[in-house]
Amino acid sequence: MTTPVRQAREALGATLREIRKDADLTGRALAAACGWHFTKVSKIEHGTTMPSEPDIRAWCQACGAADQVLDLIATARAVESMYIEWQRHMRAGMKRSQTQAIPLYERTRQFRVYENTVLPGLFHTAEYAAAIFRFWNEFLELPNDVDESVAARLERQHILYTGHRRFSFVLEEQTLRTQVGGPDVMVGQLDRLLAVMSLSRVSVGIIPAGGVRHCLAQGSFWIFDDTRVEVESISAGLDITRPREVAVHAKAFALLQESAVHGAAARQLIQRALAELQEDRE
């Protein structure tokens, strides 16, 4: 199970624990009322066991919280459906994952993006994108549609220049130094990053490797308006739509922005990475 999915299950378990405590019931008392083994309550509350819909109904009934059943069941269904195996999702090739996202990108007015390893797709050059797609194509043993996927990704970048959208990016300094495609590709990609930063609708902050941090976020994520968060891991993708969890990511993003440098200081970090690449090429 990926960390985001585990966190979602733990959040559901924490909500159920609060309902139990509000009812002034011990875990053993609740288990007895529901006819369960006493360890089941603890496993559900800690996210190690996913409650079934009958479990949720019994839990709420025993705690006098029948009015929360429908919301909790909806949350449980969301947790189960948000886990998407990449191999299954991309079995027809990677281009599909690029084109499927277009409607979401088109209707979004505010993008908030945090990346900690590689640069976001909206900034990619063709060479940088191709190197990334080639890796995932081989790693996940997918049909080879690298060229088509690159073209779809570059086409999707038109949203940077159209409509009334705002883009806020926070990048770890590591994204400037992760070698994707070799020094020549990286030089072109960092030049592209500097060019995109000049757009009035785009804000780019970079968190220096040795800087003061106000948030210890562990994984990259994208926030679309205030309605959806997308998190990606090696084997799966996670879509988060529960308002409380979206708000938690928005809070984390604000703290990440506070940790980052912007403007001339951000450009200086990019120029430094470019200078080091130039030295490697000589």
Rank of each mutant, 00 (worst) to 15 (best):
S203Y: 03
H164V: 11
V187D: 01
R201P: 06
S200A: 15
R156S: 14
V170T: 11
Y161N: 15
H158Y: 10
E141Y: 00
M186T: 05
L176D: 01
R165V: 01
G182Y: 00
R156Q: 03
L190R: 03
D145S: 11
E173T: 05
V185K: 02
S168N: 11
V150Y: 01
D145H: 07
V187G: 02
R165W: 01
Y161L: 14
L154C: 12
V146M: 08
M197S: 13
R201Q: 13
G182E: 00
T175L: 06
T162D: 13
S203A: 13
D191L: 02
D184K: 14
A195E: 15
R165A: 09
S168C: 08
T162V: 13
L154H: 06
P208F: 04
E172S: 14
L199C: 09
H164F: 01
L154Y: 04
E155M: 06
V196F: 05
M186V: 08
V170A: 07
L154P: 02
Y161W: 13
V204A: 09
V150E: 01
D145K: 07
I206S: 10
M186W: 07
L193Q: 08
E141D: 14
E155A: 15
D145A: 12
L140W: 08
P208N: 03
E141P: 00
F167Q: 07
E155D: 15
L190E: 00
F167Y: 11
R156F: 09
V170K: 11
D147F: 00
R201L: 00
Q174T: 13
R153C: 11
Q179N: 14
E172H: 10
L171G: 04
L171S: 06
P143F: 09
S203F: 04
S198R: 15
R192K: 14
I159C: 01
E148W: 04
P208E: 02
S200D: 15
V180A: 10
V202L: 08
S198Y: 00
F167G: 08
R177Y: 02
Q157C: 11
E172K: 05
I206Y: 12
G163A: 09
P143L: 11
V204K: 12
A151P: 00
N144E: 13
S149M: 03
V180N: 08
E155V: 01
M186Q: 06
R201T: 15
F167K: 07
T175Q: 03
A195N: 09
D184T: 13
L142V: 10
L190W: 02
